[in-house]
Simulated assay, not measured.
Amino acid sequence: MHKIFILGYSESFISLLLETLKVNGIVKDIVIVKNTEVKEQYPFRPAVTSVEIINSAQWRHVTSSDRFVFGVGSPSVKRKVFESFRESHGITKENFLSVRHPFNVTASSALIGKGCYCEPSVILSPFSSIGFGVTINRGVTIGHHTVIKDFATIYPGTHIAGHCVIEEGVHIGMGTSVFNNVKIGAGSVIGGGSTVTEDIPGGVTAWGSPCKIIKSADHAG
């Protein structure tokens, strides 16, 4: 049995991830790799058989059978975690597992990339496509022929209609509705509760109903 390494450390995110691993029957040989000081006891740990917590400085060797999942949900942090461990340990996208709660509905034609995490009550419609390292929280609907690209994070209760394109590293806040044929550019942040009826360019912050840009890429710093 290979070990599963959780890379990155967000306590609330990992508590949900461990529960999802548990309902999928994965309850041992789990290692959390932190890049901060290690606590003696993980406060949110569910009843799993074996969870080890180590500091990234203690982790030296990666075997061909090891598998990895992200322990954070932030798009920018996921990317940094991946790039850091790729450089230090030679990890590739192919080494990652996708973790999905069994209480989801996934069309047989949906494509799901490596390193994804789906909470309960997610619907992936026919011919939807989910990229590497995407996080989809509970109660999210992804419409038909919609593409979600690498490292995006979709927060709870969001509904994305058909033929949409969500570019890399996009953050879509809780309870957002995205209408048909909309494209959201790379790295943009959509505030919770928004109604997105038109394309949003990359690198901006947008919010509202209808959704409007409130911080442009030129003023993002």
Results as ranks from 00 to 15, higher is better:
residue 3 K to E: 11
residue 3 K to F: 02
residue 5 F to K: 00
residue 5 F to I: 01
residue 8 G to Q: 03
residue 12 S to P: 06
residue 14 I to T: 09
residue 15 S to W: 13
residue 16 L to M: 13
residue 18 L to R: 04
residue 19 E to I: 10
residue 19 E to K: 15
residue 23 V to F: 10
residue 31 V to R: 02
residue 34 K to T: 13
residue 37 E to W: 10
residue 37 E to G: 13
residue 40 E to L: 15
residue 42 Y to R: 08
residue 44 F to A: 10
residue 45 R to G: 08
residue 47 A to K: 11
residue 51 V to K: 04
residue 55 N to Q: 05
residue 56 S to I: 13
residue 60 R to C: 03
residue 61 H to T: 11
residue 74 S to A: 15
residue 77 V to N: 02
residue 77 V to C: 10
residue 79 R to P: 08
residue 88 S to Y: 05
residue 96 F to E: 01
residue 103 F to V: 09
residue 106 T to Q: 07
residue 111 L to V: 10
residue 114 K to C: 13
residue 117 Y to T: 13
residue 119 E to H: 14
residue 124 L to F: 10
residue 124 L to D: 02
residue 126 P to V: 01
residue 133 G to V: 05
residue 135 T to P: 10
residue 139 G to S: 05
residue 148 I to A: 00
residue 148 I to K: 01
residue 150 D to W: 06
residue 151 F to G: 04
residue 155 Y to A: 14
residue 159 H to R: 12
residue 162 G to Y: 10
residue 164 C to T: 03
residue 165 V to C: 04
residue 168 E to L: 06
residue 172 I to P: 08
residue 172 I to A: 08
residue 174 M to T: 11
residue 175 G to R: 01
residue 177 S to P: 09
residue 181 N to Q: 09
residue 182 V to G: 04
residue 182 V to T: 00
residue 182 V to N: 01
residue 185 G to Y: 04
residue 189 V to N: 09
residue 189 V to E: 06
residue 195 T to R: 12
residue 202 G to W: 05
residue 203 G to W: 02
residue 208 G to F: 08
residue 212 K to I: 05
residue 216 S to W: 03
residue 220 A to I: 15
